[in-house]
Design a protein around this nucleic acid. Structure first.
Lengths: 126, 126
DNA sequence: CAGGATCCCGAATGATACTG
DNA sequence: CAGTATCATTCGGGATCCTG
């Protein structure tokens, strides 16, 4: 049994990778890692996400079996999102990504400035 | 020193996370993990990426200091991309993501089928 | 070989209004 | 509260042609 060719179009692993390569999905997973959260709470916590896009993101994650959608018949209705066991195994890796980002943000910002500066120096047009 | 609020718009960590939340970037980083690769080789290895998008992806990664672009004055010119030390620290995490995807692809596909089936059952319109 | 420059279309997103 | 539905809009990405 050989390992998948991750770079091939038809590779199922790329389906998963494509889904994870979504900034909102990563942020949602990271947020749910702490605790179950309700829809509007998520909407408020994750700045900049629209209601429509948040809904789509949640549906996709639910479809992938990563999060669970639980409805409580209160008035008005309450909907709570939480990680499934499968989702929990994933968030360990997602958390590592977030952790890397926090630790290396300075190095990245510095690199960006250096890059931009060198481009500006030999910008001729305009 | 408190930790960043990862969910706030202005959080620099989200800049990094947004950049990483790119399927082509993840695939490129994962590919460069093995060895330095030339432009057209990358284009061939990563199925489905257009020349334009690959160029953009590489520029962004270079700007972030994650990969290095090396030009060899051959005829015609040769351009080789490789990971920087910073990029190498990141690819360990990226590899973990890819690894998770490979290990859990079956669970995800099964979840998708279950989800789709339950939706189809109570689809009334059309 | 490794891109830059253009044209262009469809998918993704935002805004708005409505509902169980 | 937690969405769905619709419309208007943009803009990322593909296709194509060109160049150092």
């Amino acid at each position: 049994m050989t390992t998948y060719d991750v770079y091939a179009k038809n590779c199922p692993t790329r389906l998963v990778l494509d889904r994870l390569a979504d900034k909102w999905a990563l942020l949602v997973l990271n947020r749910l890692r702490e605790e179950p959260v309700r829809f509007n709470q998520l909407r408020r916590d994750i700045e900049g996400v629209s209601q429509k896009v948040l809904t789509q993101t949640l549906r996709n994650l639910e479809r992938d079996g990563l999060i669970r959608r639980q409805i409580f018949p209160t008035v008005p209705v309450t909907v709570e999102y939480s990680l499934t066991p499968l989702g929990q195994t994933l968030t360990r890796t997602v958390a590592a990504l977030a952790h890397w980002a926090e630790e290396n943000i300075d190095a990245v910002l510095t690199a960006q400035q250096t890059f931009d500066a060198s481009r500006a120096s030999h910008a001729h047009l305009r």
